[in-house]
Design a protein around this nucleic acid. Sequence first.
DNA 1: AGACTCACG
DNA 2: ACGTACGTGAGTCTT
Length: 872
Amino acid sequence: MSTKFMIIDGSSLVHRAFYALPILSTAGGIYTNAVYGFTTMLLKLLENVKPDAVAVAFDKSRITFRNEFYQAYKAHRQATPSELAEQFSYVRRLVEAFGIKVLEEAGYEADDIIGTVACQAEQHGFDVLIVTGDKDALQLVKPGVQVMLTRKGITDLEVFNPETFFAKYGITPKQFIDMKGLMGDPSDNIPGVAGIGEKTALKLLQQFGDMEAVLQHLDQVSGKKLQETLANSVEIALLSKKLATIVCDMPLAFEAESYKFQPDMAKLQELFILLEFQSLIPRLTGLTAGKTIPALEEHSLPTAQIAVSAEDLAEIRKSLRTDSCLAVFPVVSGAVPALTVDGMAVSCQGQAVYVPADSACWDGILSLLADSSVAKMTHDGKQLLNSCRQMGAPCRHLAFDTIIAAYLIEPSATDYSLNVLSHQYLSQMANVTAGDSQSSDFAVWAARTIEALYPVFRQRLESAGLFSLFADIEVPLVDILSAMETGGITVDTEHLKTINRDLSAKIEKLLAAIYAISGEQFNVNSTKQLGALLFDKLQLPVIKKTKTGYSTDAEVLDKLLGRHPVIEYLLNYRMLTKLKSTYLDGMGILVNSLTGRIHTTFNQTVTTTGRLSSSEPNLQNIPVRTEEGRRIRELFIPGRDWNLILSADYSQIELRVLAHMSDDANLIDAFRQNQDIHTRTASEVFGVSMAEVTPPMRSKAKAVNFGIVYGISDYGLSRDIGVARKEAALYIESYFSRYPGVKKYMEQSVAMAKEQGYVSTLFGRRRYLPDINNSNFSLRSFAERTAMNTPIQGTAADIIKKAMVDVYALMQERRLKSRMLVQVHDELLFEVTEEEKDEVASLVKQAMEQTVELSVPLLVDVNTGENWAAAK
DNA sequence: AGACTCACG
DNA sequence: ACGTACGTGAGTCTT
């Protein structure tokens, strides 16, 4: 197989690109259109030609040896515009990052270097390809040397070999020089013989062969006039030919090794980011595949099952610099706690392999994962860590998770799949195997894509001030959530069955009573049928309507209480069936039959505020508000090797955060004195002493406090506490006059959102509010309330997340057996041993209260019990 | 798939 | 005059 040598006329292509593309510049004002055009061409060439050796030649100066004997050579050329001149240094840096040798010599044009190197390479047995936009280079075509010429623009390319050249021009490449000598070339200021054009030159050369032959046999030239013209122009003809001749014997040493193409992926990514070539980054990943590392080349990518040897992994390990990351992407099936790992793709600087779990060098992969000196990046680190926990293999030093990065950059997005991210951030086409995340091809693509996304995300995180939140809180939390999911929480299944039987009996009785009172059997779960009974047959007053009919929700039923005996039964029925279907039946089937535990999924990228969410089952909405509901909490018990459930919850964390962020003196005072905040608010709003606050006053004040946190509106408050809107407005006015700092803070939050388009938490987490200036009242109001609520809810979320990181680290440090089980926004749940109970209680309380220092103290209540209900 | 209802913070 | 309290997930019925 022959080896390919590609020589590019950098000067020519950059000029072409500059004039072919509209002026582009980065946000920082760097002009990039020529660099961009050149880079896309270079990438395309590397992809299509797959050269083994590459060089790029540049003109070094305007003055060359040709000026020595002909001053006017290229003299009338316009000066390079500064917009283009500035781009050459970036082109050079790019070429160097690509690991491509740059050629330039004082006194010579790029063409001469190209001619010289082309001849040398051809003599060394290379297949040479010259790429240029300058037709002059066509004279270099010969067996073993092809010229690729840009036609119009920069994408249309035409390849010439001796045959295709002759077919097109009817002369040989060597004669091309004679043509130019005779005709001249106005663009280069080559004079040529006056009065000889293309037709005549062609005729002469076809008859005589070359210029020298023409001049020696002037007598044989047809036409007296032409003979005279030529005779008078011998010197100028020979000079013109000399000017047009590309030098092929410059004194240049040829070292084949120095032209070997070896891209530096890290440098390239850096430059692409700098120049804002995001869309080109993924093209880098294909560059070196199976190319530069011989050990990998043998098992050439990307076939599905790749046998990888220990040496291959050693190569990867070798190419891992201390500041570089290993991208990993596991292929898994099933879910926690019955997860199977089929294999894993790993990639380092574009060199990727897929290793099946049953292959000989799987241990090599596991040792890479366990090696804390090798930083890992992945997409969905929790999945990776769950996989490792499943195998009982440690995975150390998770440094970057693209799913978390994408979430922090854009928390309102709903789809953080790699496919979407590569499209969104790398402008990459959808991966064809994307539907099959089980496939090894997908995994290899995924690992490379993660690497390509890394610099983009890293830069975005840093420029948005999100990196510390990312690296110090969110990424460490990934491992903790994985541990919590894998560990699970034990459920008392016997007790579950008992409660379920009990509930079923009660529901059956209620159902019978409902049928008896209403005089008909119907589906009570159907709001449509229930509405027909209540509002058509029984003629009860319609309190509220929904889009599709009558509303029958608890609020409506509450208002109908006493108007008909069936209402009370319905309310109870609703409550009990909810408990049964969602919490007993629904959760029951999710208890693992082997471990007796439930393994929820904690989602770290769902909420727009920064909170976690929990699903399958949702352990963050286990009933607590009613007596019947609290029985569900009795089902959550410590595992066999533990003794107690410990619960630690922040007291009024959101209002404390508000006190801190608003810097309201009155609110701060309330918390510094550790007063009952709702009583204090009642005293302020109603203008009475705290001792005079009555229970209804306190309850109203409590609603006001909630309203404040949610982004208050008189309408919402009036609806919640059942007073006239005017009265609600009065409470709000009164509140703000007593807490002016809070009022100012809320106004600032909205103003900030309107100005910069987003609001942020104490830790820098952002939420964008595109509707904040919308002319639609409803949408705008919603955005305004969000602007008030998100910094508070989000900061509280930041705080408990940071506390989890602190608590987990301390528990590991002290090698405690007790384990963190669940997070419920302001509460952490643990299973603890009797011996560790006191230590964990004080450790947790301390860590949670001290994780951040606010202008008011954080207060954590800790309780233990034999189950979740008892730990209150 | 969307609406409704209801569980939690 | 406008018309929603903020953030979630799950079960059930209807279309």
